[in-house]
């Protein structure tokens, strides 16, 4: 059972990273992206290729992954600078769908649907280490960074943009730079999560980076509460442990297990939103946090 929980904890930590970084974009900068899985994927492929071709050094893998995801986040920053609201959601959706096709087709780098297999276990100075401590450290560092930024001048600039972009611009805030930086930071974080994911699973393929996955991460943020520091983490724990918990319901016939789990998962998402629309940790009275 310990191995089982360690596996689950590692996934929760990795998705925790995804959720808190997405929350940084959504909650603080008001950029609603449904393409977070794209940068998760870029990081995973980068990390996997580093581990396979250079060395299974997690620091190197995470660094390269963060760099690649951060640089390519320009694809997302560009529309973010042009449009907002539903338009941006649609743009990120377009990006997600196009990226998915690219992930499937650029087989020399991604392995397509067959994926990259046999990714070696991470080693630091020649010693094999588990992914769980690495992921927890990364998560802690990112939380600390987000906390520091949210309360610093960068955070104030972002919130000003979120709440009234034109006013912020009129006040001379560097709107374009701040937005691009927020997107780059969040996407680099997703890249780190991707590299850790690749090292943990020893296998990556395009199916881990679908629109589904993006929506799952988005759901974690919303369910936990946007703009709160720990809300997304709560969302990650909840949405990841739900299906695992459901799998212990042994009275469901084997052929219906998948569907029943999905139905309960979907229902939980909907009901939570209907009854706690600001998320579990969000301020219910404050209500909506943007526009």
């Amino acid at each position: 059972m310990i191995a089982y929980f360690a596996n689950l904890a590692t996934l929760v930590a990795i998705f925790g990273i995804l959720a808190v970084t997405l929350n940084f974009m959504v909650g603080y900068a008001g950029i609603f992206s449904v393409a977070h899985a794209v940068f998760f994927g870029l990081g995973a492929y980068a990390g996997a290729q580093i581990a396979l071709t250079v060395a299974p050094d997690p620091l190197l893998a995470c660094g390269v992954a963060a760099l690649i995801a951060g640089v390519l986040s320009l694809c997302l920053a560009l529309p973010a600078l042009r449009v907002r609201g539903e338009y941006f959601v649609a743009a990120s959706l377009g990006l997600q769908m196009v990226a998915l096709t690219l992930f499937s087709e650029v087989k020399s780098l991604t392995g397509g649907i067959g994926g990259l297999t046999n990714i070696p276990r991470p080693r630091v100075f020649g010693v094999e280490v588990g992914v769980l401590p690495l992921a927890l450290i990364a998560l802690g560092l990112l939380l600390w960074a987000i906390h520091a930024m949210a309360n610093g001048s960068f955070g104030r600039t972002l919130k000003a943009i979120r709440d009234a972009e034109s006013a912020a611009e009129a006040l001379g805030k560097p709107v374009a730079v701040a937005k691009a930086l927020a997107v780059a930071f969040a996407c680099a974080g997703a890249g780190v999560a991707g590299a850790l994911f690749a090292l943990h699973m020893s296998f990556v393929n395009v199916e881990s980076f679908t629109l589904d996955q993006s929506v799952l991460v988005m759901a974690m943020v919303i369910v936990g509460g946007t703009g709160t520091l720990f809300g997304p983490l709560v969302g990650a724990v909840l949405l990841l442990s739900l299906p695992s918990a459901l799998s212990f319901l042994t009275f469901i016939p084997p052929t219906e297990v998948g569907s029943v789990q999905q139905i309960i998962y979907g229902l939980a998402m909907t009901l939570l939103m209907v009854f706690r629309p600001a998320g579990l940790l969000g301020d219910q009275n404050k209500g909506k946090s943007h526009q």
Partner: peptide, 14 residues
């Protein structure tokens, strides 16, 4: 579009 096929934890029936 593969959508609500939950991408992460598969079912586990013992």
């Amino acid at each position: 579009t593969k959508f609500s096929r939950r991408a992460l934890l598969g079912s586990a029936l013992a």
